[in-house]
Design a protein around this nucleic acid. Structure first.
Lengths: 198, 198
DNA sequence: GTCTATAATCAGATAGAC
DNA sequence: GTCTATCTGATTATAGAC
């Protein structure tokens, strides 16, 4: 009965996703080290032991989430570059989407913040971050340089602008953790893009 | 012999400081949960048990460091406001000092990032962060509003500007942890202050 | 004051019943 | 597949020798 096996496979995939979703919320707010397997189980509404049915260990759950977030970030930038429109419009799109993400679903960017925030992170995670930093930065710099050639972006070294932009975005995600700060008004795309104005 | 007692007191104070300094480096890069007492002892060059001679537990060491960083941040802003010069010049001073700090001694700002980065932080730490967020923000907003009245700062809501600035600063500290990013050029005060330009 | 050794606790991972 | 119970190792904190 290959049908049943396939359905089972699909069900397992679904449960795995649900677990990841729950785990994302927890890791995003506590970080890798402070999160216990019990927290993951509780958040997903399953028993302690069952987590090990889906992942070999805690690090693997976290690594899967980092992988996912990295993919999403790089994909966002790539899709922006494929868009019609000027470099400035593309940058505007990236910024808007990033801010939206941070405001509405901070867990995803926060996973990256948490991964960045500790040196004592598994090697796979470090490699994913490496890829992220390199690719995201390179694409962003290219975008900025295009904008500079078109006279739409100020003539400050692109690497400097890229790094500042990245810092702002990550910092905004970080401050979403803290309830006190989550209440203060969230900046608009236009405010953030002032950094790039000629 | 009150003299000897006093000297002892002073020596103990010194050792306590040395321990804090070593602990700061470790906590800054690993965070509270991922740091083991063995790490602190090793970093300070003392035995495991001796740490407990100076602090009752791990959390207290971290809390002391957060307290220190919060004090420093608030004091910086207060001293800037007492300075002669226009609001813009005061803001320039704050920004320069913050960037200097992040570049040369990232551990101090990183302690605040780490404290922000986990919900599962001791209550004393949370209270200190509350104070920090509230006071730092209020002073910064006042400074921004003064600058706006003087026509030196763009007319975007001060709360929004303050939050964005804080995010950028914290984000820059965060990216200092990651070796890959530490190599890319660090932004200048002028680049950061573009956010505020009219 | 400083260390090493020990006790107690806690969390990660596994085994085995249902 | 899912759970509970157990084992194992790591880590915190303490005790006691020097």
């Amino acid at each position: 009965m290959p049908r049943t096996a396939e359905q089972n496979q699909r069900l397992k995939e679904e449960r795995r996703r649900a677990l990841l979703k729950a785990a994302r919320e927890v890791f995003a707010r506590r970080g890798l080290a402070a999160t216990k397997m019990t927290d993951l189980a509780a958040a997903a509404g399953i028993s302690y032991g069952l987590v090990y049915h889906y992942f070999p260990d805690k690090e693997s759950v976290f690594a899967a989430l980092v992988e996912e977030a990295v993919r999403g970030g790089i994909e966002l930038l790539a899709s922006a570059r494929r868009r019609p429109g000027t470099p400035w419009e593309q940058l505007h799109y990236v910024c808007t989407r990033l801010l939206e993400g941070i405001r509405e679903e901070p867990s995803i960017p926060l996973i990256l913040v948490q991964a960045h925030a500790s040196e004592s992170v598994p090697a796979v995670v470090e490699q994913a971050l490496d890829r992220y930093s390199t690719q995201f930065n390179r694409h962003l710099e290219e975008l900025i340089e295009s904008g500079q050639k078109a006279g739409q972006i100020v003539n400050v070294p692109a690497t400097e602008l890229a790094r500042t932009f990245l810092a702002t975005v990550q910092g905004l995600a970080l401050t979403q953790i803290f309830p006190q700060l989550r209440k203060t008004p969230f900046p608009s795309t236009d405010t953030i893009l002032r950094l790039f104005k000629p």
